[in-house]
Design a protein around this nucleic acid. Structure first.
Lengths: 201, 201
DNA sequence: CTCGTAGATGTACGTTGTACGCCTACGTCG
DNA sequence: CGACGTAGGCGTACAACGTACATCTACGAG
């Protein structure tokens, strides 16, 4: 009846994502988002109950950008395609990774994502507890790997430090090798391991 | 020469962990830790440069509690034993999980843990890039699964919500099944999948 | 006993999330 | 077409946080 809303959840999520992408996660404050939208800080609270809900909006927005319609084919290729799309979408906004890890269980789009994964698995003959384990293992790998890539990329300084550790010879040797492994290759080869294990189970 | 230090890093980490275990992660403030130690807030800064370093101290302390001397035997059993110990140790302080995810790449004890894993893998004949992938995949699984268990345990309310989703039939069916899967079983069966995939590679 | 050094502390400031109360613009109804 | 009630928008204010800074103090070495 009264004054209409001037913001959509999507617009709010987009503005928040803009702030994060431009200035980093530390710069994500209610004041910064409000300024980005050209409105007063407290006005945001007409749309979210607190900052956590704003963060969930962003996470949901990012995950919603993934195209879930993977072409038919071998189930392993389909899972690989789906997860690659998620990874690509996430890496396009890498500063949101910490938020993703925290809120992925609470956003609607993650249910959509899980349903898509389960559809592929079901098509491939997975059922019952075996499907539960498959689903959870795949998701654990996906987000574990995103975490690896975000906090400790093989090409990053951490690997260099490890390569110089005389106290840990295997670590040093492995880290030296790892510096030449691209993130893409790491992800796909790791995923291949998981999928092979699923196929043989 | 002058006044000796009254705190060891270990004592600082223990006090911090006490606060976290007792009052939760939100209650982790410099003031709370100082009170726990019976000293002034600013005194902590003689031992850490900022709060992040305090958090790393805790993470390192927790991971250091893992006994890395796994008995000889089949490499898959050895990896399973090692990861189970890490998991057990972490679940004994489950409120630190978010800190663990954030800081695990920056603490010394994680290098020790990686070295131990690499030793088992090397014994089993893993080498070169294959060992790099194996290591990273195992770690991704471990922390991805801990994340799963912490933020969205199969026995938790999230699963109940999913089981009631009419819009997502597969999700609902799978979630209903999942409620009966214990965390232990989930972890071990998922790990078995990963290890099988590694063996066949 | 004295002294220099580094540990311990108290105060204070800037930043954050957000509770609260007021003002205002709009859709609806007379 | 005008008055009204409702919900959106906003400004102020506050408590809690991390931590910079200046000061005081207790100890080991001489």
């Amino acid at each position: 009846m009264p004054r209409p809303r001037s913001l959509t959840p999507d617009r709010l999520a987009t503005a928040t994502l803009t702030v994060i992408d431009r200035d980093g996660l530390d710069a994500l404050t209610m004041r910064a988002v409000a300024k980005e939208l050209g409105m007063a800080t407290m006005s945001l609270y007409r749309y979210v109950t607190d900052k956590d809900e704003l963060e969930m909006l962003v996470v949901d927005h990012v995950l919603s950008g993934v195209n879930l319609a993977v072409p038919p084919g071998d189930w392993r290729e389909r899972i690989t395609e789906l997860l690659s799309r998620v990874r690509k979408q996430v890496l396009a906004h890498s500063a949101v990774v910490p938020l993703l890890l925290r809120h992925r269980h609470s956003v609607p789009s993650s249910m959509v994502l899980i349903e898509a994964t389960l559809a592929i698995l079901t098509d491939a003959g997975f059922a019952g507890e075996r499907r539960v384990i498959a689903q959870r293992t795949i998701v654990a790998f996906l987000f574990g790997m995103l975490q690896n890539e975000h906090y400790g990329p093989l090409s990053g300084p951490g690997t260099a430090v490890m390569a110089a550790q005389e106290r840990f010879p295997l670590l040093a040797e492995t880290a030296a090798l790892a510096r030449d492994v691209a993130g893409d290759a790491e992800f796909h080869k790791g995923l291949a391991v998981v999928l092979r294990g699923l196929a043989d189970g």
